[in-house]
């Protein structure tokens, strides 16, 4: 997987982005109560925070509230940022946790049984439904890109919050398993297990949408 890691923002001065040193100075100014510096941080990161939150939340109205909450938390908690990680990493964790907290409070409209979309096997370890069809190429032929993306977004909505946060962080954001684990207080094996299960679920949903067995 390509790693579009959270630290890359800091090293690019193209497109008017601040350098690592400039950002460190800005953060010191925010800590000292400089509101202009806070607004500079806001301008620098709001798009990324919005996109990250939207991927988890899935609708604009709630995402707006999450973005508000994240930047309020930045203002309130920036003194606890000691610079041991990149600021963008700290902000990524903050955004994940604010969004996750909101997802956990949501009443899930319908309980989807993940197991219904996971592969099944016979006792001897063979696939339960054989042959397994390779429907990969059919995705592009039978589904418009928009339809494919709608299916994936809907499937993501059906995942438990932590599983959703893991797959969004990994496969949509390109965050490393180690960073995801640190953000969500999970061990790396636990991150990988959740990521694998979420991918299998998505795979199962896509298979079913094309008329094949998830197994």
């Amino acid at each position: 997987m390509g790693q579009r890691g959270s630290t890359e923002v800091l090293h690019s001065t193209a497109k008017g982005q601040t350098s690592y040193d400039e950002e460190r100075v800005l953060i010191q100014r925010v800590k000292a109560g400089d509101y202009e510096a806070f607004e500079a941080i806001f301008r620098q990161h709001v798009s990324r925070v919005y996109r990250q939150a939207f991927k988890l939340i899935g609708n604009e109205a709630e995402t707006e509230e999450v973005v508000q909450e994240v930047f309020l938390a930045v203002h309130q908690k920036v003194k606890t940022f000691r610079g041991e990680s990149a600021f963008s990493t700290w902000l990524y964790r903050l955004t994940t946790n604010v969004a996750l907290s909101r997802l956990r409070k949501r009443k899930r409209s319908k309980e989807v049984l993940l197991d219904d979309y996971l592969p099944r096997f016979h006792e001897d370890g063979h696939h339960e439904v054989r042959p397994v069809f390779n429907w990969g190429n059919e995705l592009d032929v039978r589904l418009e890109k928009q339809e494919l993306h709608r299916l994936i977004r809907e499937a993501l909505e059906e995942l438990p919050p932590v599983d959703k946060a893991v797959i969004v962080s990994s496969d949509l954001e390109g965050i490393s398993n180690r960073e995801i684990g640190e953000s969500l207080a999970l061990s790396i094996p636990a991150v990988k297990a959740r990521l694998h299960r979420a991918r299998l679920f998505l795979r199962g949903k896509l298979a079913v949408s094309l008329g094949y067995s998830p197994s």
Binding site: E64, V132, N134, G136, L139, H149, D171, L206
Partner: peptide, 28 residues
């Protein structure tokens, strides 16, 4: 069977990776 399964697993990861999201709306 496992070749097909692996291929569809990879295709699923690619499809998720291809999702695109808009920037924050100006008014928001």
């Amino acid at each position: 069977d496992c070749i097909a399964f692996l291929s569809t697993y990879q295709k699923t990861v690619q499809a998720a990776h291809s999702l695109r999201y808009e920037s924050i709306p100006l008014e928001m």
